[in-house]
Computed example of a mutant assay.
Amino acid sequence: MADILYKYKDSVYANITNKCNCSCTFCIRSLKDGVGSADTLWHQQNPTTDEVLNAIRNYDFEGFDELVFCGYGEPTCALETLLAAAKVAKEEKNLRTRLNTNGLGNEENGRNIVPEIAKVIDAVSISLNAPDSKKYSEVTRPKYDGAFDKMVDFATKCKEEIKDVKWSIVDVLPEEDIAKCKALSESTGIKLRIRHFT
């Protein structure tokens, strides 16, 4: 089995599924098998909820105060595992929890999942990737029609129930696109983090 938990920079990450509803042109999955301390993040078979919970319970988090749900798949594609794992991380390990997501979890699960994740997730980082629907579809190649608007709606719903919500983009976007992303951030009141592309 691939690593369920791995260290990257100053955080511990939970790789709970390889399933994803996007096929991003820049996805690191197409470049290498692992990240950080993980030799491989490719699960031959996605871990069960119990396997993820056992990994968290048996992991030494000394020196770390946060668990980030982010691996080689979209965490909300394994929603029940995500919710159970975040609950254990908070209640049994006293960790802050963060969800890194593409923001299409409502579409994936056929309902508004924000009230559920708000109970166990302290922070949400949503990959904005592009400033408008056309460019977003070209870059992320999502499974769903109208994905950009659905992602924005998800972000807005998160902002209503979770204190720490951010969009993220990488600094390789054209300056014009970055400016448009900043404008969207200001109009929605959702912070924008510009990450360095590695």
Rank of each mutant, 00 (worst) to 15 (best):
V124D: 06
C27S: 04
C77I: 06
C20T: 13
L99M: 00
A130M: 07
L82S: 09
P115T: 10
K32R: 15
F197W: 05
E176W: 05
I28T: 03
C181R: 12
T17P: 08
K119M: 11
V172A: 05
T81H: 00
G34R: 09
L104A: 12
Y59F: 15
C22V: 15
E92H: 11
D122N: 13
A183W: 03
N54L: 14
T25L: 15
N129L: 11
G146H: 06
L67E: 00
I113V: 04
L5T: 05
A179K: 14
T81F: 01
C70W: 02
N112S: 05
A14H: 09
N46M: 08
I162D: 09
V52Y: 04
T198M: 13
D50Q: 15
A147W: 04
F69D: 10
R96M: 08
Y59E: 04
Y13L: 10
A155G: 15
S185T: 02
S11Q: 11
D60E: 00
V170S: 03
V88L: 13
T97W: 03
P47L: 03
S37Y: 01
E186W: 10
I113H: 01
T17Q: 07
E92G: 07
N112V: 14
D3M: 06
A55N: 04
L173C: 03
K119W: 07
E74D: 09
P131Q: 13
E176A: 15
K135Q: 14
A179V: 02
T17S: 10
D10P: 08
D164A: 07
C77A: 15
H43K: 11
N54C: 11
R111H: 06
V120Q: 11
K90Y: 10
N58Y: 04
K135C: 07
D65C: 07
E116C: 10
L53M: 06
S168T: 06
Y8A: 12
L184H: 10
S30H: 14
D132N: 15
E80M: 13
A84F: 05
I4C: 03
V120M: 11
Q44Y: 09
L95T: 01
D132L: 02
T17L: 07
V172E: 14
I56S: 00
D145M: 07
R193W: 01
I190Q: 00
I194W: 00
K163E: 15
P47V: 10
N46F: 06
K9N: 14
G110D: 01
I16N: 12
A123G: 14
F26S: 02
K180W: 10
C20L: 10
N46I: 12
K19R: 15
A130T: 07
